[in-house]
Design a protein around this nucleic acid. Sequence first.
DNA 1: ACCCAGGGTCATA
DNA 2: TATGACCATGGG
Length: 227
Amino acid sequence: MAAVKQAMRTKAVTLMTVYEALYQTYGPQDWWPGDSAFEVMVGAVLTQNAAWVNVEQAINNLKRAGALSPEQIVDSHPRRLAAWLRPSGYFNVKARRLRALCKWILDQGGIKPIGKLPTQELRQALLAVHGIGPETADDILLYAFGRPVFVIDAYTRRIFTRLGMIAGDESYETLRQWFESELARDVRLFNEYHALIVMHGKDNCRPRPVCKDCCLANRCPALSGQN
DNA sequence: ACCCAGGGTCATA
DNA sequence: TATGACCATGGG
């Protein structure tokens, strides 16, 4: 076993070898959960600093109320919208953000015209919407519109910092361009990779490392010695 | 009781 | 431009 770990330690660690390790451990994730591009967009806003199980409840509240559409959300009373979003946390903040997103969608003439915009143009437009920052914009680009954009989140920083592959304090844009330049520009790859990073983060890469039977431990200087 | 979650905005220095 | 406060529920 020590020989196996030693052998893996000498093999070059690249973004693709890390991906393979994660994929072997967790399998295909088939993200994003959601029945439509609009539902993915809603989920992207609601999952900001929130656990997905809680987001599901908020989305179910919207569905049960027949309110999961840009029109219904824009027309709903702020207090009522916030009440539906309550399980996902920050409900007053997210009510405003969802409203801003839906207003923008309606201003654009709906999801269809938005889907025809070139990626960079769409990205800039999303970032101009209140409540949509870089990560949420890229979630939407990748998972709602199938654009080859790599999503950077806190887990990504943590994992690759502990692997010694980045410093960790790079700007969002710097990291996104680094990942996109190191990898083949493949939507399917970007889709699975980010999902796998999140899954691995939940298991083993909390702020305080869990590192129990971590599939990356033997390539991770920060983690070696903890197993 | 404490930690954390599939972030972003806004005020301040 | 760079921190810090703030938002808030729910599960481990």
